[in-house]
Simulated scan of single mutants.
Amino acid sequence: MVIVTDTVYVSRTVQAQVEQLMQWYPVVSVTGPRQSGKSTMLRRLFPDYDYINLERLQNRQAALLDPAGFIEDRPNHLIIDEAQYVPDLFSSIQAVVDEQKIKGEYILSGSQNFLLSKNIQQSLAGRVGIVKMPPLTFSEIVAGTSVIDDLDAVDEFTFRGGYPELVVNSIPSRIYFQNYVDTYIARDVTQFLDVRNRDDFIRFLRLCAENAGQTINYAAMSSVLGVDYRTVKAWISILESSYITFHLQPYHSNGTKRLVKTPKLYFYDTGLLCYLLNIDSSRSMLLDQHFGAIFENMVIAEQLKTHLDRGWEPRLFFYRDQQQREIDLLDFTMPDQHQIVEIKSGRTYHERFSRHLRSVGNELGIPAFHRHVVCRTEMSFRDGDIAIDPVNKWLIDQ
Score class of each variant (00 low, 15 high):
221 M>R: 08
335 P>Q: 12
310 R>G: 13
65 L>Y: 09
233 K>E: 15
30 V>S: 00
173 S>T: 13
207 L>S: 09
48 D>E: 15
200 D>Q: 14
219 A>I: 04
70 F>P: 02
222 S>Y: 04
183 T>G: 06
244 I>D: 00
252 H>W: 10
224 V>L: 06
16 A>Y: 11
379 M>A: 04
24 W>N: 10
398 Q>V: 04
234 A>P: 04
292 G>M: 01
318 F>G: 00
396 I>D: 10
74 R>T: 12
377 T>H: 00
265 L>G: 06
359 S>N: 08
41 M>C: 09
50 D>L: 15
245 T>V: 15
234 A>D: 04
338 H>E: 04
376 R>V: 06
115 L>V: 06
73 D>V: 01
183 T>C: 02
23 Q>D: 05
368 A>G: 03
18 V>Q: 05
105 E>P: 10
131 V>A: 04
123 S>L: 05
48 D>R: 13
299 V>H: 09
253 S>P: 07
265 L>E: 13
209 A>L: 10
15 Q>V: 03
259 L>Q: 08
133 M>H: 00
66 D>R: 01
124 L>K: 05
44 R>M: 12
151 L>R: 10
337 Q>E: 13
367 P>F: 07
7 T>W: 06
206 R>W: 13
153 A>R: 07
190 T>V: 10
195 V>G: 01
360 V>F: 05
199 D>Y: 08
344 K>D: 03
53 N>G: 03
224 V>S: 10
371 R>T: 10
277 L>W: 08
110 G>Y: 12
243 Y>P: 03
338 H>C: 03
334 M>G: 02
234 A>N: 12
288 D>W: 07
247 H>T: 03
225 L>W: 06
119 N>R: 03
167 V>Y: 03
